[in-house]
Computed example of a mutant assay.
Amino acid sequence: MPQHALLAHDLVRSLGGRRVLDGVCLTASPGHRIGLIGENGVGKSTLLRLLAGVDEPDAGSVTRPAGLGFLHQEMPFDAGATISAVLDDALREAREDLAELERLSEELARVPEDDPGHQELLDVYGRRLEQAQDRRSWDADRHAARVLDGLGLGAFGHDRTLGSLSGGQRGRLALAALLVRRPPALLLDEPTNHLDDSAATFLEEQLRGLCGAVVLASHDRAFLDAVCTDLVDLDPAVDGPVRYGGNYSAYLGEKRAERERWERRYAEERQELAELRHSAGVTARRVAPAAALRARGPRRACGGERWLLGVFA
């Protein structure tokens, strides 16, 4: 199935009387994994919430793919829900794909090829098949088990309730559910907060394997380096947020190059200013004697003075 881009246009959002985002634009195309970076308070989490539709902008618009996934701080389940219920919800779309493909196959078998409705059925089957392939629906249950293991939840009984899990464990389960779903676009806010090194490495591998767009905010530089294809620096700048191609190391290299260019321009401007000052000083010293002579008024000049007056007249 065709993957659609996540688009934000001229987003404005104020919180507590302070404008956090001012005219932010962002295009997250399929296959791109965009990291949001900047100091605390520049609007990384706010931008993710606007992209997800959890919060509304004061101005601007967002166009998002259907089925977009957002890593919430808390899961949309009550404390009595079980791990099994969370997994069933994450696997629901894949199971629907398989059930619909089976139904369409049976219907195609009943409709003769020369029937006018056969081609339409075949087209519907083809689209559903592509969707199932994108979601890897046939492998969904095995993939779910692998994701739980990779995020350190494999040993948990599926009858465990969310209320019996720690905050970090619930966060990892929420992340696991999104990875099992494989949504067409994925938004993540500090996804490595509750992960050890092994789980973080597993998450990196999973994100690199997704076909859709990923937008994430993280302070984990190693994670940004391993995952991102682009970075958006939200720290205040004259022209607004700046997008850099490449991972975090590439971003640091570009920032160093920018700094070196700025230092060269500054040195050149200082040199030019020094030369202008020197030139102005020389001109002033040449003009000063003539100005002094004129200030004395007319009188008989000796030969030397007549010569100077002729020079500076």
Rank of each mutant, 00 (worst) to 15 (best):
E93L: 14
D89G: 00
A145W: 02
G117Y: 05
R110L: 13
D141V: 14
A155S: 12
G163M: 10
P112Q: 09
R135Q: 06
W138I: 01
G157Y: 00
A81N: 04
R160P: 00
G126P: 00
D114E: 14
G171H: 14
T192P: 08
L178Y: 02
R172S: 01
L101A: 08
S84N: 09
L91H: 07
D149S: 12
L179E: 02
A79M: 05
L129R: 15
A140Y: 03
V180S: 01
L98W: 11
D123N: 06
G154K: 11
D149F: 00
L87G: 02
A90G: 08
F156K: 09
A144D: 00
V111H: 11
A176C: 06
G167N: 10
D149Y: 01
R128T: 09
E130V: 03
Q131N: 08
Q169F: 07
P116I: 05
L101M: 14
L98R: 15
S137R: 06
Q133I: 10
A132Q: 09
I83F: 02
G126K: 09
E106C: 03
E130H: 09
V111G: 06
P191C: 09
A109N: 14
G168T: 12
L148M: 14
L148A: 03
S84E: 15
L121R: 12
Q119T: 06
L148K: 10
G117F: 03
H158S: 03
L129A: 14
